[in-house]
Design a protein around this nucleic acid. Sequence first.
RNA 1: UGCCCGAUAGUAUAAUGGUAGUACGACAGAUUUUGGUUCUGUUUGUCUUGGUUCGAAUCCAGGUCGGGCAACCA
Length: 556
Amino acid sequence: MDTKEEKSHNFIEEIVESDLAAGKYKEIVTRFPPEPNGYLHIGHASSICLNFGLTNKFPGYTNLRFDDTNPVTEDTEYVESIKDDIRWLGFTWKNELYASDYFGKLYDFAVQLIKKGLAYVDDSTADAIAALKGTPTQPGVDSPFRNRSVEENLDLFARMKAGEFPDGARTLRVKIDMAHPNMLMRDPILYRIKHAHHHRTGNDWCIYPMYDFAHGQSDSIEHITHSLCTLEFVPHRELYDWLIQTLEIYPSHQYEFARRNINYTVTSKRKLLQLVNEKFVDGWDDPRMPTISGLRRRGYTPESIRDFCDRIGIAKRENLIDVSLLEFCIREDLNKIALRRMVVFDPLKLVITNYPEGKTEMLQSEENPEAEKIEVRDIPFSRELYIEKEDFMENPPKKFFRLAPGQMVRLKSAYIIKCDEVIKDENGNIIELRCSYIPESRSGADTSGINVKGTLHWVSIPHAVSAEVRLYDRLFRVEDPGNEEGDFKEYINPDSLQVISHVYAEPALLKSRFGDRYQFLRKGYFTLDKDSSEENLVFNRTVTLKDTWAKEKSKT
RNA sequence: UGCCCGAUAGUAUAAUGGUAGUACGACAGAUUUUGGUUCUGUUUGUCUUGGUUCGAAUCCAGGUCGGGCAACCA
């Protein structure tokens, strides 16, 4: 019996495993810390899978903590969408928490630092602070307010909290070293004044802690053992550790990994927000968006996204992941679960001349040939059918397995037919095909002995139902739009959405419900869109099928 | 001209001093009532120069290249 090879650990799992083995912790605590100022995207999914995945693999739990320290950009709309998305991805948090829950504690921490002579109120303007900060290669200069007395600092900070000063008039800064080689250690700001309404604390506060004075402290309060964040926070770790040590609070530790980037899209909340606000897309859940809600509406499954995150792994190097891997993951999942349906997008009329007029025959076809237990559905067959225009060629190349004058093909789950005659209009356009069928070739009861190379999908004209399909392509024409010259929006793919308002579908599709997943035979995977109604079925194409014929064609 | 992080096939990721592997992609073939699926095979890689070592992707030193750091954002 072959034991399945254990999947190798990423570097963070290694750290956790060795911490656990060394007895440093009995259980681990991680957190997913979104700022509620945008919708979650595929990059966040990776972080979610990491944080929650860790505590699924190892003993411990994961908190959801909203990093809501900037009331100006944050909103409960985002809080709700973030919770929905995490749940939909299939994860459960232990505690729903907010950095704003700790505003009181954080204030007390600040007072402690002032009392230790390690924090001061600075009256400098933002410009002055920036000017005295120095540059990466030049040391900064002490603020003229740096040496105020503890009493004065205590008084001023209390009055900042009391709302005596306008926005931006004063800040509280920690006193470290203005010549420190790490710029984040040059007396970083702890608190700033913002007379703004907070989505949770309302108007209770007019001073708000900065990220560096909220995140690590929140981690510590929650006894987070492994605080995972992306690489741009590496230089913050020194300050993170300094504050925890100085405040003598629970020592959480920060570990950094490289954010996941995917080609032909952007995953920056600022850029995504622009696409939404400037109407380049239909909203945060536009099926072309790399947001979780966009992927959901597009028809991606949570399983496929988790599988994707699993396959791309976690590491520290810069990366640009090929979107074809994401597409592979969704195809693999949908192939197993999607119900097969026949839908003709671009119809060509086909008349079976030797089939009785007015006759309707019910044929059976598999719901899903990959299923362990094959179930079937009924499909009406009649004398007049639609096939796909591109499935017929008058002068076909040698490798064309589809219909052509004098050629035979199988109609999926029906009969073998032969093309006898091509009917054209006065302009020479092909408007109808006259074919004959082989009665003994009926699917499942074929005694004809005829072998054909091609199988086509089809729809019976009198039974066809109408639907709209929306075909999506990548949102950008270039691999890394965020890194191109000029505005990233110049690189939007103008053909990222193609709507076909009337396609012809087999009647079984009439019973579609939200969340149903289909494979339209030879066309791709589709799911019902929220714009759909009883009168107008609307389907989103999740992803195409792999198409080796298209590849073959493009060679010439 | 400072501090920090990184570099393994086209892409992503393993190998933790001992055979450079996996997945996706690409290519070729088999099977197929979806040019889908499935199966088989092929292809391509340790940034560089030294050093340590019986042995280096791995350890050390120098270099090169890429990225981050000067928001009262997170």
